[in-house]
Computed example of a mutant assay.
Amino acid sequence: MNTEDPAGKHVSVMLQRCVDALAPAISAPGAVVVDCTLGLGGHSEALLTQFPEVRLVATDRDPSALRLAGQRLERFGDRATLVHAVYDELPQVLERLGIDQVQGILFDLGVSSMQLDEAERGFAYAQDAPLDMRMDQTRGQTAADVLNTYSHGQLAHILKFFGEERFAGKIASVIVREREKEPFTTSARLVELVRNAIPAATRRTGGNPAKRTFQALRIEVNGELEVLDRAIPAALDVLALGGRIAVMSFQSLEDRLVKQHFAAAATSTAPPGLPIVPEEHQPWLKLLTRGAELPTEEEIEENRRAASVRLRVAERIRNTPRA
């Protein structure tokens, strides 16, 4: 990545759609918008540019992303506050900044373009690299640690549930057998082993057969689903009345979690059959997308990484004791 041009060739996914989705909530003076997944700062830059009076708080667990996005957003001065934090820590971040509620929240989940493009991070299966996969390289276990220390049962579990891999048990057996000969350190060996463990007929479709294994390892290394399961309720808690939240997911497990949290807040909790639903049982979130919204064909042509994105948008319509 060229540090002289933090944006590089990066194309932010569904950029204008996300800005438009949040616009009604963040147009008023004094509005605060949170970019929970700053990355290279494309969405944050657009929000700050199109809403000159908005204040931005942006978090990222990746120090490299914060540094590069900081260069990109420097011209906005104190309108932008960048914080090294995981997005489930949002309530603590806002408390330290003296902010009680926010009007807009954006999540762009999954691995960032910068992380995919930097070979030494180990996220991409198309090139040989150290098996790291940590979004924050200052702490935590690496993908190599997982491969070399987890039991067969643990490996099979994460491959099946996080990678949705049909051949999880077989791949786990190969990993356990081969690590006895030599510990795993780089990605090319793992890619080849996974390819050989999957039946030839299956390898002919669906792209690189190691894709699901790499997804599973990345999710495990970064605790992504556990963090997201805490982060969405935490974000909804700090969303002001009339505030909006937009979440982009890139795989079904993430999207399912977001859907569940949104649906729970948008559904009455009253027993069925009541002639009048008490206010405390009425929904407090309104879903603004029908299911998950998909990218346009034009966007996919422009940016292939947008192909798998699913966008969900919701608005807070009622205050609750938890707010």
Score class of each variant (00 low, 15 high):
223 G>T: 03
141 Q>G: 15
18 C>G: 01
62 D>N: 11
120 E>K: 08
22 L>E: 03
270 A>V: 05
303 N>S: 03
304 R>G: 10
154 Q>S: 12
154 Q>D: 12
273 G>N: 00
81 T>V: 15
230 R>D: 06
319 N>Y: 15
141 Q>S: 15
161 F>L: 14
169 G>F: 08
68 L>S: 10
58 A>Y: 07
179 R>H: 08
84 H>Q: 03
98 G>L: 10
172 A>Q: 10
201 A>S: 15
212 R>S: 04
242 G>D: 01
31 A>H: 11
256 R>L: 05
113 S>Q: 00
292 A>K: 11
172 A>C: 10
118 E>F: 02
233 P>Q: 06
59 T>N: 11
137 Q>P: 09
266 A>V: 07
322 R>W: 12
161 F>S: 11
24 P>M: 14
165 E>G: 15
260 Q>S: 08
71 Q>I: 14
126 A>I: 06
314 A>D: 07
21 A>M: 00
27 S>Y: 12
284 W>A: 07
188 A>Y: 10
28 A>F: 15
276 I>V: 08
125 Y>I: 01
154 Q>Y: 11
297 E>R: 10
161 F>I: 14
216 A>H: 05
263 A>P: 14
321 P>E: 14
134 R>L: 09
91 P>W: 14
43 H>V: 05
266 A>M: 09
187 S>Q: 13
217 L>K: 02
163 G>T: 01
90 L>Q: 01
117 D>P: 02
121 R>W: 05
111 V>E: 00
244 R>V: 12
63 P>K: 09
286 K>C: 14
